[in-house]
Amino acid sequence: MDFIRNIDCLRQIAREVRKDILTMLNKAGSGHTGGSLSAVELLTALFFAKLRHDPQKPCWKDRDRFILSKGHAAPVLYAILARCGYFEREELLHLRELGSRLQGHPDSKFTPGVEVPTGSLGQGLSMANGIALAARLDGLSTRVYVLLGDGEVQEGQVWEAAMTAGHYKLDNVCAILDNNGLQIDGWVKDVKNVEPLAPKWEAFGWAVLEIDGHNFGEILSALDKAEEIKGKPTIIIAHTVKGKGVSFFENKAKYHGVAPTNEELERALKELENA
């Protein structure tokens, strides 16, 4: 796909993606609103301005790969994939329905553009490492991007995988941490504190970049910079707001796994239109 580096264009796409997320969640009647909205800019930048991929040829061998390790944010991935052209946007309205290709959590068996199934947290980085090791063996220039949640890094396997990527110096792996501060039971710092994050990843042999995860300028420059860092994997710790873009969803743990009602959808779409 041709890259879009114009920030106004990316903002426009992000706004449309947010509307799609809210609309499909409302139609489905269930799903994960907050953690989808917090990752909109991150995925928009990645898919429209960085990832070498081709919706017409989803299995192109040398493509870059994206793994949504925080699989519950499936709606944002589906909205982006549809907008990229992997499937029709109309299909988004069948999210979570029996017979739909859009499963509640990403499933590579059904959905074009989904590389691996996720949903059980903590497993995406290991798979990213495997793809990165294979690319290295095959001499491919593939880069592997993986989106982690901040609550997700409470899973031990994340740190096993972090150690592996550090040990094998997988500079073709770029993790992005959607650091929205909330998990189902409340603030991450209250449930079980994961901070300090940057020194942890550094200690595991990673380069760490910290950005505002809703600022396209910062996201693009971090993604560019990560590509230039050699000899170690990079993690971009993106500070985000759960529920971002809809004032009454922002920073509310309650909206982790709740879909907008009809009334909430109407208010939210109005708010996005006027933003």
Binding site: S108, G130, A161
Partner: peptide, 10 residues
């Protein structure tokens, strides 16, 4: 998980 990733890549 790493084995799964290697399999994904062929």
């Amino acid at each position: 998980g790493t084995a799964a990733g290697l399999a994904v890549a062929g």
